[in-house]
Computed example of a mutant assay.
Amino acid sequence: MPSLAAISKIDFPFRTDQKEVKKYAKDFFAPSFPQVESMLTAFDHTEIVTRNFCKPLGYYSDLHSFQEQNAEYIRISLEYSVKAIENCISLAQINKNDVTDIIFISTTGLSTPSLDALIINKMRLNQNINRMAIFGLGCGGGVAGYSKACILAKANPDAVVLLVAVELCSLTFLRNDFSISNFIGSSLFSDGIAACLITGDNHVNKTKNEITFLATQSKLHYDSLDVMGWEFVDAGFKVLFSPDIPSIIAKNVNNDVTSFLDKNHLKISDIKNFIFHPGGKKVITAYEEALSVKGDFLKNTREVMNENGNMSSPTVLYVLDRFLTQGFENGYGLMSSMGPGFSCEMVLLQMSKK
């Protein structure tokens, strides 16, 4: 079965303390929100300590056109994607010319040609690489991308699939948007880039851990299209998300998870490693209450959130990386994330230490 050869993530040089972001938001939103003092508790309730930002905080005080911000999205995405990929290739001890497929996941900027083409050109990767660029999956993109990479590797035993997830959420911040959604977004979202290499059966990975793909499932909940997403306005990407997201997750996640596991003849109690996208503090609480797993099963999820904020699609790959660096239990692993649609993405893994 397809297996994970390596994973690499980016820690941007402008990591910022949440208290500093809170002060910035207070000064920014005060003229439009007389009740801003009471609303600022949203920053504390996230339990985020630092945010992974691709720009210094002062950048967001200035007014930038969509053209300017999108140009920065392309420049920064390319620069740091290449760094993540080079590190990933080095960790996997794989020649870059052996990469057969590239999947690029992002929802926070636009580029045509897509960023995967820019990466191939910049790194001089094989010109015959199969390309897949996916836009619009939001927070669900990390697990969906991992699933698609594994499906490609399962279909071709010789495959070396490169997955790159990039979200620069901070560059979508609209300076003149004084909506509640923009305020809440400013308390939660940040930037992240992660790269993974997934190989087919004909490759012998040189890693100390064996993470193999077993199964996957996607689910789109009907009549929930307005729960999360973008409204595209003249100034750029306007964030939309419902305050009902935690309650929607609490209502549906148990059935989504148990039905997926039932298909694979497993129960929640069989899962040893929960590799979940955090979403936010309320989302984590909804997971905990709905799944009723003993112990602190979302410790890595919560700590990635505390240290980085919600980086959208790459976040779950940061959580996976944390399992690899901090240790995991031998047995089954379950990757899961929720995204626009409203959707649920899941991947079942077999995890063991060599």
Rank of each mutant, 00 (worst) to 15 (best):
P2K: 07
S3F: 08
A5C: 08
I7Y: 05
R15H: 15
D17T: 02
E20T: 10
V21I: 15
A25V: 04
K26I: 14
F28N: 10
S32P: 03
Q35E: 15
V36Y: 01
M39L: 15
D44H: 05
R51A: 11
F53L: 15
F53K: 12
K55A: 07
L57W: 10
L63V: 14
L63C: 12
H64R: 14
I74R: 11
I74H: 08
I76D: 00
E79W: 00
E79N: 08
Y80T: 05
K83S: 11
A92I: 05
Q93Y: 07
N97P: 02
D98A: 14
T100Q: 08
I103D: 00
I103N: 03
F104Y: 14
G109A: 06
L110T: 12
D116S: 01
N121K: 15
M123G: 04
R124K: 15
N126M: 09
I129A: 02
N130Y: 12
N130L: 08
I134H: 01
I134S: 01
I134P: 00
L137R: 06
G138H: 04
G140E: 03
V143T: 13
K148F: 05
A149M: 08
C150A: 10
I151P: 00
L152E: 13
P157N: 00
D158N: 15
A159F: 04
L162A: 02
L163M: 11
L163E: 05
V164G: 02
V166K: 08
E167K: 07
S170D: 05
T172L: 03
T172C: 12
F173Y: 15
L174K: 03
D177A: 06
S181W: 04
F183Y: 13
D191Y: 02
G192M: 04
A194F: 01
A195Y: 01
A195G: 03
C196A: 10
L197A: 02
I198K: 03
G200N: 09
H203C: 04
V204R: 12
T207G: 13
K208C: 05
K208V: 10
L214H: 13
T216N: 12
L220H: 10
S224W: 02
L225Y: 14
V227W: 07
W230N: 02
K238W: 04
S242A: 01
K251I: 04
N252C: 06
V257T: 14
F260N: 09
D262I: 07
D262W: 06
K263D: 14
K267F: 09
K267H: 10
K272C: 10
K272I: 06
K281Q: 08
K282S: 11
I284C: 14
I284K: 10
Y287G: 00
E288I: 00
A290N: 05
S292A: 14
D296A: 11
D296V: 06
K299D: 11
E303R: 10
N308A: 03
N310V: 07
N310L: 05
P314L: 06
L317R: 02
F323V: 03
L324I: 09
T325P: 06
Q326M: 09
G327Y: 09
G327V: 11
L334Q: 09
F342G: 00
S343N: 05
C344E: 07
C344L: 01
C344I: 14
L348A: 08
L349P: 07
M351D: 01
K353E: 05
K354M: 14
